[in-house]
Amino acid sequence: MAVASLATACLPPRVLRDYPRWRIVGGQSFARDCLRAEAYVRKSGKTGIGVTLVLRSLHDCAVEIRRAELVFPDGHRAAATADARALAPMVGRTLRYHWLPLPFDNDAAWDDGQRDATLELELAIAGQPVVWRMPAQHRWDQRWNDTRLVRR
């Protein structure tokens, strides 16, 4: 084992490609009436992004997601489907992780140099419409991952 450890230590690190990633850079938390919410980009790749909405209700709370779009400065919009937006009723004090995929051609967006967009969620809380806007950026912080030092 000692020999193996020494051999591993002497080997050069394996440096692998990293990938660009969309991040929400503002307005990540939201509070209105009976709803407290946060949004996190959990997946980001060629076919779009996937966002987890962390939804907490303070009591029975009728919440709808009427529209969920990633809006680019040139007007192009990537929208979530109706199925992806469907929410079951939130009864009492509820914590729910809602998966919200936003499919679009992210390769084309990257190649076109589109690095900024806004994640817009039009909600209805107890029937009252409200728009939750979150600026997002497509960043590539590191081009390579050193797998000897950084294990994912």
């Binding site: 990938y19 660009p20 990633r21 990540q28 946060e38 996190y40 980009v41 959990r42 997946k43 980001s44 790749g45 060629k46 076919t47 779009g48 992004i49 996937g50 987890t52 962390v54 914590l95 992780y97 998966w99 995929p101 936003l102 499919p103 992210n106 390769d107 990257w110 190649d111 590539w140 994912r152």
Partner: peptide
């Protein structure tokens, strides 16, 4: 750097979701 984004499966949510702000599924 052309076509730099990685491969993701958006049909499935992350394997383990606990609301951690730093969590991320690498492509």
């Amino acid at each position: 750097t052309r076509h730099a984004p990685g491969q993701v499966d958006l049909s499935q949510p992350p394997a383990r979701e606990v609301g951690d702000p730093a969590a991320y599924d690498p492509p």
